[in-house]
């Protein structure tokens, strides 16, 4: 079936001029129209198609260039701002350090001052207390002296008022001696 179909095809081809492309009668108009079509298409493309393409490509190129420039400018500005901020930060840190240092020095000054005044106060209080103790001691000694005089006067009165025998004198002397021995400081 297929073989006979192709045999017929071959016969048909042999009867014709072989490949249709080699049929000279169709050459001339194709040459003319190929050239004409090409140049008409060239004209239309050159006039209506290429300019908008080139325009948009140039526009895009310009936009990319200006965007890049703007980006570079922003980057430089950001750099500058960053440097400024760093500088300010450093200044602030320096200021803070200085303030802390000053505060420490002041605090130390106040501490020394307070310690000195306290020492003076204590010394003053101590001297006052010592003076008071001294005064009290003197008063006590004076009082004791008065008391001893009174006792001596009382004893003397009693001796004088009473008719004394030998035993009585002895007794009194012994009492006096005992008193002196018991408290030897009293007569000073």
């Amino acid at each position: 079936m297929i073989a006979s179909a192709y045999a017929a095809t071959a016969e048909h081809a042999a009867a014709g001029s072989g490949m249709p492309q080699f049929e000279p009668s169709v050459f001339q108009h194709q040459i003319v129209w190929s050239i004409a079509s090409f140049f008409v298409l060239l004209y239309l493309l050159k006039k209506y198609v290429l300019p908008p393409i080139e325009k948009i490509l140039d526009e895009r190129g310009g936009k990319i260039r200006s965007d890049l420039e703007a980006a570079e400018k922003s980057r430089q500005e950001a750099d500058k701002i960053r440097q400024d901020v760093q500088r300010q930060l450093a200044a602030a840190r320096r200021l803070a350090d200085q303030t802390v240092e000053e505060a420490r020095l002041e605090a130390a000054k106040y501490r020394d001052l307070a310690r000195e005044s306290l020492t003076q106060e204590l010394a003053k209080k101590k001297s006052v207390a010592l003076a008071e103790i001294d005064a009290a001691k003197r008063a006590a000694v004076a009082e004791l002296h008065d008391a001893v005089v009174d006792i001596a006067m009382l004893a003397t009165e009693k001796l004088i008022a009473k008719s004394m025998n030998k035993n009585d004198v002895n007794k009194v002397v012994q009492e006096a001696v005992a008193a002196i021995q018991a408290n030897p400081g009293k007569l000073q």
Partner: peptide, 28 residues
């Protein structure tokens, strides 16, 4: 199939068929 064969020419679609015959100054 054999009767249809002439239409089954695999080179058939390379045939140039003139729709309108024009002549301009002797050029086709």
């Amino acid at each position: 199939v054999a009767a249809a064969a002439p239409k089954m020419d695999p080179l058939h679609h390379f045939h140039v068929t003139k729709y309108l015959d024009f002549d301009y100054l002797g050029i086709d």
